[in-house]
Design a protein around this nucleic acid. Sequence first.
DNA 1: GCCAACGTTGGC
DNA 2: GCCAACGTTGGC
Length: 156
Amino acid sequence: MPRRYWLFKSEPNAYSYDDLLRDGVAEWDGVRNFQARNTLRDDIQEGDGVLFYHSNEKPLSVIGTAIVVRSGYPDHTAWDPGSDHSDPKSTPDNPTWYMVDIKAEYRFPTPVPLEQLKTMPELAEMVLLQKGSRLSVQPVTELEWNAVVALGKQSG
DNA sequence: GCCAACGTTGGC
DNA sequence: GCCAACGTTGGC
C-alpha cells in the first residue's frame, strides 16, 4: 500500500512538537470524535506521514512532520479513571476509542503558517482550510503534503 | 474573550 | 427519529 498522509492538530500547550521530539514516540491518545476515531482505527498505517499542526495558539502553523510507527489500537486512556479523557463506555473488551503511535520526523526550518496555506490555490481543498472544520485527525493528499513540506523546507 | 460551526445528548 | 439544548473546537 502506498504511503498515505494525514494532519494531526495539537494545542501546543497540551502537547507540542517539541514534546514529541523530547518523547521520541508518542501515543496519540485522547481523540474523542467518531470520524477521527474511524481514521485512526481503519486508515492510518505504519509508515504514513503526519503533518503536525499547532492549533489554538499563535503562530497557528504546521511545524513539522511525524511518521506513524504503530497503526490503530485501542486507546487505553479511555478506561483509566485518572485520565482527562476517560470514557466509562469504552472497555478493554469492547473499546470505543483508538489511537496510533507517532514519532517526530522532520522539524521545518520554517514553520508554515495557516495564513500562508490559505493563499495557495493548490491547497484550497485541504480539509484544514474548510470552513468550520474541527477534525483533529484528517486526511491530506500527496499533492498537499508535497506542497506543505516544500514550504517548510524553505529557509527564511 | 467572542462566537460560529459542529458533534453529541436526551426529551419527546 | 426528530430536533433543541448543550458543550467543545478553534480561528479571529
